[in-house]
Design a protein around this nucleic acid. Structure first.
Lengths: 191, 191
DNA sequence: CTAAATTTTCAGTATATACTGAAAATTAAA
DNA sequence: TTTAATTTTCAGTATATACTGAAAATTTAG
């Protein structure tokens, strides 16, 4: 690998981090190289940059594609496949979140739902079921919120994030406020 | 393992899920058994329930402790160590989030900060640096929001979550609203 | 269609991670 | 203290995951 040192540090770190993110070292490094590259790269360029075998790179790309983390591109007069990460970093965040929901949350929710429906055959099972129900309701609340957020435009989302918990200063007055006349619309309370 | 079938399903699922959560099967299953148990359990009871070796259970408990996911308890006239999960499920969520921040986010932020400070030696490095800066700023914004949220009382947090993106209906009027006289307090706009 | 370029698959192998039993360390009752 | 109960550590082994080269499949230019 003969990447500039500054880039190499990032790439290696991303590879290490990968394992904590459910992707392996190879996949993490491939993603990092693509993220930092100004132009899309083909598989041979990635091999060149990282020193993995061609087949390993192919598998890594396959995994990244299945996670919607890279896009296939083509260059004029070149039949090789080129790959790039998404332009907008918020698209990446949204994709990552969605991937995690699908892989880490959804299966658990399904499992919980089916177990909760069963009839408990002992006090032990009854207690366990109540704990599972609690977990189910919590996850459902969190994913409900997440779905709401996922639908928002990025600009609005950023505004909300920047406000942080200060939004609560508004919330506590939700039933007591009224818009000062003169704006585009008037509203009493919040639906 | 001779757990009731309903509990066994949950435990096995949690074990499988563990690998996607950065903990291994053993650790996931131990956690699941503790979560569903009405009383704290000692290591031998966990061995009994799951069929792992004593030493494997010891290591699993050690890892769960280091993640603040289990608490050590003692029973009268019994010198064995007993373990239990936190009572309040929100404490669990907060702990999990904090663990992830420490393990998945903080190291990356540190690495990004140090690289951004270096002088780029080529156009390629310059571009890479700008991408890293973008990533850094995004992560900082998200963790800033997260810190805000982490400080909130659970009840308030739940209210906010239930509102979801409807909160934005409030936000857009933030500079235009005034509290209807007669409430406990009055405020113009938001600090 | 044929043939060259390119990508993908997969069985075998290497590497990393998890698990065990035995032995060491710790704890606390006597 | 001593000693029995209990927990923890660790070297060796088993298991799972990652990686490779060679061969198969796919793609496209001619």
């Amino acid at each position: 690998m003969e990447l500039p040192p500054l880039i190499q540090t990032f790439v290696l770190h991303f590879g290490e981090m990968g394992s904590r993110w459910g992707i392996n070292r190879t996949v993490g490094q491939i993603y990092a190289v693509l993220y930092l590259s100004e132009k899309p790269l083909n598989a041979d360029q990635i091999v060149e940059a990282l020193g993995f075998s061609r087949s390993n790179v192919a598998m890594g790309i396959k995994e990244l594609s299945s996670m919607n983390l890279v896009m296939l591109k083509h260059m004029p007069h070149d039949r090789k496949d080129y790959y790039a990460t998404h332009e907008n970093i918020w698209d990446i965040v949204r994709n990552l979140a969605e991937e995690r929901r699908k892989r880490e949350i959804e299966p658990t929710l399904t499992m919980l739902r089916s177990i909760i429906l069963e009839k408990p055959k002992s006090e032990e099972e009854k207690f366990a079921q109540s704990k599972m129900e609690e977990m189910h309701d919590l996850i459902e609340m969190l994913t409900g919120w997440y779905n709401d957020i996922q639908k928002m435009e990025t600009e609005r989302l950023v505004n909300l994030l920047k406000m942080g918990s200060k939004i609560y200063n508004l919330y506590q007055y939700k039933d007591k406020l009224k818009i000062i006349p003169g704006g585009k619309s008037q509203k009493k309370g919040i639906s």
